[in-house]
Design a protein around this nucleic acid. Structure first.
Lengths: 357, 357
DNA sequence: TCTAACCGATAAATCGATTTTTCGTTCTTG
DNA sequence: CAAGAACGAAAAATCGATTTATCGGTTAGA
């Protein structure tokens, strides 16, 4: 039933109206759940809807209202598990409230980020969930501000004076990593990161540093940051290890502040024939499915994707519904999974590839 | 300049018209590039557009035309690199042609897949790129057919009598994997897969089997398939290995037909203390960034994401523009990257964890 | 000279809904 | 019993564009 001839024009609200013998306005009201309609007419409308297989055209529907039921989501990339599941979550939450999510990737470019935002503004989206490439002070957030758009900033942000922010509590997680490493006896740790993501990198670095130094003031913390690209980081890391190896004072552990850094560190270990955790320990910010399948399993900070997405959507819809309170910065706690890639620095440097496990 | 008062109603085409001293129709024509407008008027329109910061409302614009400039994309998940970059590519291609991409995740559920499709039909999208959960014969494709939607099916499909299909040439790639493994001396290989994805799983399995048997007719090929979920596969695999280990006839190599299978196999190796490639070799369908950073690096079949996306969009737009030719099934060649996880079965079974490299 | 074709532009219809206004009944109530 | 409130539904306005029909004014051809 309700099987219409394919390829045909879909029935409009007027078709339903004439089939039910009422006006289009009445159909609209019935479907919106207005109670001031005679039951008899409501029934006939429902019948006609059923018979014609009618469904409201969201485009036409949104046309008439001030706020359209579309949410925009801008992520720096779609290729990682973190942003992938973030989009999945956001889409589900938007759908729950009858909104459509339009997601776009800024591909780690602030220029593109702003263009996408302009296009979403053209669509007159009700709200935007923006995961900025760098931080909350970029051109995209400025654009949103200048055009009075409503939105939430997530992930690589700390706090903002115009928008709500939701992100992982990087500092606390990093402090926990520091406690774990220092607790295992590590006193010389290398931290690697990407300077571009200034907002969170600083929080992660300082969280780690202060916790480590508090527990063991003699801890030596080296830092290798690449400005904006991942590849330069590989070179910097290579140089760093070469120098340290020559001077025989290489770190006993590496803490990567972002996923690609973990991969770069791992492959640099490979190149040098170092094995985790005997030759060096490794912890990375951001978990991934493969990390528990490889040997050794890689220790990682797990970001609370569901919580971030859920909170972002909640606060966003509050704003859409007119909440005018001051913007709030929310931090969600992470989980730190200490896996086999972390051990005591016992075996000492240059221990070679002998025994594992 | 063009900096309007924030939060204010955006200028409509009528605002531009009155500022330029012409009618809305003229503005529309000028912006559409119609040449039958007096240059003087065109200039005034452009001036007004500039002054007001006017941009066409895509919603209102699409309202009036039969085909809306929206493309729907449905992927089984967003969490993997493959589908993540697929969405990125599709989005870029849609944007290039002035279309907006609305992506949704079916979360590996055929029910959800159909619901999403129905919603996209409500939006009257111009076309759909569907990566079905199972294959081209599912309810989603049937829905598209019944409603006369235009679309392309990608990835887990072979060919269809109603829609164009674009996918990786799984069979050829699997044959190449077979040649590589047999060439290295493997004569007992386990193939693991997910039965749900019938379309491609069969192609991959048969491609592998026929090539292997052709080269070495005595090759023994075991198959472990889980019907639809990943977790059962873990159990099946565990049972399989236990039995084979007891009988002292375990395979010397594993070929996983999909990414999660590779992860399951890897962690099962971990559990048993088997190391690649000394104790067992491993090749997986689907590449991932981490596979070249771990030790050993994991051999994998790389699917041509860009080519698949590019072709899908090209054929889709051809259909949107009215091409009525018979549907075509397109196969894009894969690359096979043989990495360290594959070696000769020399060390023999139960070789233990001694020497690596 | 009169009509036909042509030009450029405007008015009006249209897309498919929602929302406001108007209007005819029926029900209260003084 | 008449005035007014209440009710339910239809008519009309609206959202912001595109497209078609129309129209006045030239110019060309018969």
């Amino acid at each position: 039933m309700a099987q219409q001839e394919a390829k045909q024009r879909r029935p409009s609200i007027h078709d339903v109206a004439s089939h039910a013998g009422v006006s289009a306005a009445t159909v609209s009201k019935v479907l919106a759940g207005v109670t001031t309609v005679r039951p008899e007419n409501a029934r006939r409308v429902f019948d006609a809807v059923e018979r014609l297989g009618y469904r409201v055209d969201p485009l036409a529907s949104d046309m008439r209202r001030a706020k359209r039921r579309i949410i925009g989501a801008i992520m720096p990339e779609f290729e990682s598990e973190f942003f992938g599941s973030m989009v999945t979550e956001l889409e589900g939450l938007a759908e729950q409230r009858g909104y459509t999510l339009v997601a776009a990737s800024s591909r780690e470019s602030e220029t593109r980020e702003k263009e996408i935002l302009a296009r979403m503004h053209d669509w007159r989206v009700a709200g935007v969930v923006l995961a900025p490439v760098r931080n909350e002070h970029g051109p995209a957030a400025a654009f949103m501000k200048a055009n009075g758009m409503t939105g939430v900033l997530i992930d690589r942000v700390l706090s903002d004076d115009a928008f709500d922010t939701v992100s992982a509590d990087s500092a606390a997680a990093s402090a926990e990593v520091a406690r774990a490493l220092v607790g295992q006896g590590h006193r010389h740790v290398l931290v690697v990161g990407l300077g571009q993501q200034a907002a969170t990198v600083r929080a992660r670095l300082e969280g780690f540093r202060s916790a480590a130094l508090q527990l063991a003031p003699d801890t030596r913390i080296d830092v290798v940051l690449s400005e904006s690209e991942v590849e330069p980081l590989r070179t910097l890391l290579r140089d760093y290890f070469s120098k340290r190896e020559a001077g025989d004072d290489r770190p006993t552990a590496v803490y990567s502040l972002f996923l690609k850094g973990t991969l770069v560190a791992l492959s640099e270990f490979r190149r040098r024939g170092w094995h985790c955790p005997n030759d060096i320990s490794l912890v990375g910010f951001d978990d991934a499915e493969w990390m528990q399948a490889t040997w050794p399993a890689i220790a990682a900070v797990v970001q609370p994707v569901r919580e971030i997405a859920g909170n972002a959507m909640e606060v966003l819809f509050r704003r859409i519904e007119g909440d005018g309170g001051p913007p709030r910065a929310r931090l969600e706690p992470c989980k730190v999974l200490m896996r086999e890639s972390v051990g005591s620095p016992g075996s000492g440097p240059h221990s070679g590839g002998g025994d594992r496990q």
